[in-house]
């Protein structure tokens, strides 16, 4: 019986995934807190009462267009919640392009689980 192990496949570097993740997270923080900042400014400057629920995406946009702080808070919170999903989808695409099919599938699976939970939440919300 031979004890020689099979030759090891060449390891694919995930540096492009890491740099893309950092970029997506950085922009998510900027965009999310920009919306929250506008929300706080409107809450201080106007007499709108902040809603106790975020509401549907359509309601968020409608409130934002009416310069209601709740709309900006909702979008800011939504952007932050969606950041990890955007990161996962992007990572799955990059891993697939790099040829790391196995981990592209794992990443896509996690993105799918989280996306479905968000989709159901939006439909119910």
């Amino acid at each position: 019986m031979s004890t020689q192990s099979a030759p090891k496949p060449e390891r694919i570097s995930i540096a492009p995934v890491i740099s893309a993740t950092l970029r997506i997270y950085r922009w998510a923080v900027y965009i999310s807190f920009a919306f929250l900042g506008v929300g706080f400014a409107l809450a201080l400057l106007t007499d709108h009462e902040v809603e106790r629920e975020i509401g549907t995406p359509v309601e968020m946009v409608r409130r934002a267009l009416e310069l209601h702080p709740s709309g900006y808070f909702g979008i800011g919170i939504g952007v932050m919640i969606l950041a990890p999903i955007a990161m996962l989808i992007n990572a799955a695409v990059i891993l697939f392009r790099l040829g790391d099919r196995k981990y592209a599938r794992f990443t896509a699976l996690v993105a799918l689980i989280l996306s479905l939970s968000i989709l159901v939440a939006f439909l119910k919300g």
Binding site: F33, L36, I77
Partner: peptide, 28 residues
């Protein structure tokens, strides 16, 4: 943990338990 909590936040959002008046200041 960031990815894990997305799933939690989604379920609580669907049940109307994400209150912007509490969550937005907490994020800051």
């Amino acid at each position: 943990v960031g990815m894990t909590s997305v799933a939690t936040a989604a379920v609580f959002y669907a049940s109307g338990k994400i209150d912007p008046a509490v969550t937005a200041p907490a994020m800051v």
